[in-house]
Design a protein around this nucleic acid. Structure first.
Lengths: 110, 110
DNA sequence: TAATTATTTCTACAAATCAGAACATTATAA
DNA sequence: TTATAATGTTCTGATTTGTAGAAATAATTA
């Protein structure tokens, strides 16, 4: 590992950030992951991954408005960067190609 | 990690085993991963992952013919089990759903 | 000011992945 | 018979990725 690959959870979180645009922040990412992917993780895992994704330049972040009608810290909102999108796209297209081969070779399992 | 998720490399190797049916064994898996996925890994990583996948019942293995026209130990051939195929399918369909949402929300990045 | 709420940050550990080396096995070549 | 080539296995140790809980922070409400 030379820090260039996207881990399993990293990819999922990145994808979720994209699917939640433009209101992606840790708690809703956690919720979405649980609901859509059956993937239960604690909040701090989401944050850890988000930080790593930001270091890899696959997401960028900014703080939300400071006067919402609620208590609590400001939301930290995340967005997928063009680099992040490319990374996702590249993974998907390659995986899809392998899927195509597999379905062709083992049509009985479909 | 509670040992129940399919890691990034585990998924790729599993998919590659399927796409190479019925001649999937470590060296060609390594080659295929490098060529189709730009994913360079050393042989021992493939073995490690294959062993884990077999423990998870996502692949099964048998030894190849003992009289091939080549030197070396017998090939250990791997196949995706129905459970393995289901795991791949489940991941794919969930990820594709997130992809759909993302493309809808950020069509500018396409 | 204190309590409550929502979220982020810190810290530490576990699991997955990576890399290289030593060794075993089988067939062919010398 | 010995050497060589082509596998495959196993081990050891390092790095990256994933997990979990506690602590800290910032905003609102009492």
């Amino acid at each position: 590992m030379r820090g260039e690959n996207l881990g399993e959870l990293e990819e999922l979180v990145l994808l979720t950030v994209g699917s939640l645009y433009p209101e992606a922040y840790a708690p809703v990412i956690k919720k979405e992951l649980a609901e859509k992917m059956d993937r239960k993780v604690v909040m701090s895992s989401i944050h850890t991954v988000l930080t790593r994704l930001e270091n890899k330049q696959f997401v960028c972040s900014r703080f939300g408005d400071s006067t919402p009608e609620r208590g609590g810290k400001r939301k930290r909102l995340f967005e997928v960067t063009p680099e992040g999108f490319k990374a996702l796209e590249s993974l998907k297209s390659k995986r899809d190609a392998l899927w195509g081969n597999m379905l062709q070779l083992m049509p009985n399992l479909q």
